[in-house]
Design a protein around this nucleic acid. Structure first.
Lengths: 343, 343
DNA sequence: AACGGCGTGTATAACGTTGTAAAACTTGAG
DNA sequence: CTCAAGTTTTACAACGTTATACACGCCGTT
């Protein structure tokens, strides 16, 4: 059986509370007493029972991180950064994945999935503002990612509109004129709305038409969805000279299709992705991408949720993380002359 | 404040234990009483306190899954499969990542990282047999992956030697004669030993020499490590006509180097990876790979750890999951004639 | 010599739940 | 109408921890 405070107390010949005081570094303990108790702790191999501590203090030391998709390396890297940040505050991270479905996101936000947590960091895809409005749960919630919510929760994200505009501006600067957008999500909600808006705004700023036929909606956000969307655009007879994808896996899926159809990247079509995942640096054509500061996002998310947990909670805020555009082969140089007006 | 059994009991005018009986579907409760209590539960919005339940029962309902690397999509997919399998048994998964370092793996195996778990599924990289031998922790442990341990724990893996032999046999069957192996790990431990052994055995079976100069050791198992290893082999003046990589990211890293150096895949050099990650299906050259049955591995791991937890524990066993070789473009066709003996 | 104040250690009562054993109700037979 | 046997409900203790309030001894001061 596991050894408890009582056993240590008996072994050291002191009261239970004194042992507890030593374990918790309570200040009013003489060095002699502290050492005597510590020796008993070491001898017996005592380790505190977290359930009992939790029951007493009302804290578990666990925060949950709910992500739509673990398979996407962006989220995997983000998870790693959250886990690291949390461990620096002696917190453990319970990873959950929602599959990006509204139903699962709702369950998570209302605390039905993981009921042993002090705080929750949620990266929603389909969840609506109204879904969160009547959240009865009392564990602190921090939102992550692109969606725009008007709610009393901290929200950490990069400036998606600005980032998308930078990507499109880069393409236009290379002489591209017909920039497709891949990954506007199908369905009533529009999670990619900010990036589409950035695309639209930057085209307008450059005096170019925003051809809505160059915006491809998809069901998911994986390689296959990007490939499907690219095929869809090309099958419609359009021939853009650039593609901006919602994320890197979709960009890579699109590049595969371009390769299959004999279109060269970047000569015929330039491609820009989003998230800067490692995979984009090792393809036959390396991928230009918007690189969010994942480490900062993870750190800020943990700090926000812990701040709220410890009641040092300021007003709910929107916190911006940095981003930058990383240029690689997929946008190298100006378009090949042959491509213009080929259709 | 949160509502407890006591509050519900007061509201329904019954004892605490009766409410508990209703919550736990205890059998000796009249339908009338059950409904009356249930109504109070619904009205007050009662939700059980897991910490108290844990303290009382000694179970948390959480199992930990410790993986070396979340960024590798193989592990991400595996994690998803474990999470799904666990949720079918009403268990929650706490994901931990060790970075593949011996120190972290040791901490995890001894329960210092996550101290609130009923069971542990660990995929070790560097951990030695001796490290686990004097494990004092009493939570059930299930091992995952390639390492070969002679210890009283369940171990779930595919037959790595057979899988590696199948990959090499496929290459030899295509007429390849100089097959390099990328990813024998540097350092005293040799986690890739089974796959190297398969490589060696199959070459021997085909009457081909096992040129140890074609085995490249690396520090890690990512894209960059594969690229480094490939460069190392080519810089040494050797010119293999096939490469078998420890995993898909390394294979893709190697393919990038081949592309940069103007070597064609598969004409000049065929490439086979391991794990069959999604990324391998969307490169300019799709990747032939050994595909382990990840869903089965996750399911078996969860079932093993829960069996041990519930004392239906049989002898420690080695459990084999299926695998198959998926052929794609990177091994399509026979070698180009020009390449032979080019060096 | 008595007293207040301070620093250190201790008994006790929670936290919310479930297992045990006993009490309180049914039911049916004599 | 009583009693035994069975069914349903209840009181209470325990799980391991920490907060509260108090007791004790030791100072220096009056």
């Amino acid at each position: 059986m596991r050894v408890s405070l009582k056993d240590v107390a008996a072994h050291a010949g002191v009261s239970i509370k004194t042992v507890s005081n030593v374990v918790n570094n309570y200040q009013h303990v003489t060095p002699a007493m502290r050492e005597r108790v510590q020796r008993s702790i070491d001898v017996l191999g005592y380790r505190p029972n977290l359930a009992a501590r939790h029951l007493r203090k009302g804290r578990t030391g666990i925060i949950a991180l709910a992500l739509p998709e673990l398979g996407n390396p962006y989220f995997a890297e983000l998870a790693a950064s959250v886990i690291d940040a949390a461990s620096q505050h002696d917190y453990i991270v319970l990873l959950d994945h929602t599959g990006g479905s509204r139903e699962q996101e709702l369950l998570v936000s209302q605390g039905f999935r993981a009921r042993v947590i002090d705080g929750l960091i949620l990266s929603p895809i389909e969840l609506e503002t109204e879904d969160l409005r009547d959240r009865s749960e009392d564990v602190p919630l921090v939102l992550l990612g692109e969606r725009d919510y008007d709610l009393p929760y901290d929200h950490i994200a990069i400036d998606n509109v600005a980032a998308a505009r930078a990507a499109v501006r880069h393409l236009i600067g290379l002489g591209r004129r017909e920039v497709a957008f891949i990954g506007a999500r199908r369905g009533r909600s529009e999670p990619a709305q900010l990036r589409v808006r950035g695309w639209r705004e930057e085209l307008a700023a450059a005096g170019l038409p925003a051809d809505e036929g160059l915006v491809a909606a998809t069901d998911g956000w994986g390689h296959a969805d990007g490939a499907l969307a690219m095929n869809h655009i090309l099958d419609s007879g359009r021939r853009p000279d650039a593609v901006f994808a919602y994320n890197d896996p979709m960009a890579i899926g699109a590049m595969r299709v371009l390769h299959e159809r004999g279109l060269r990247v970047p000569e015929d079509i330039a491609v820009v992705g989003f998230d800067d995942v490692i995979e984009g640096r090792f393809g036959a054509v390396t991928l230009t991408s918007v690189s969010p500061d994942k480490a900062a996002i993870g750190r800020l998310a943990v700090e926000s949720v812990l701040a709220r947990l410890h009641d040092r909670a300021p007003e709910p805020r929107r916190i911006w993380a940095d981003h930058q555009l990383v240029e690689r082969e997929s946008t190298l140089g100006r378009p090949a002359a042959t491509n213009r007006g080929a259709a």
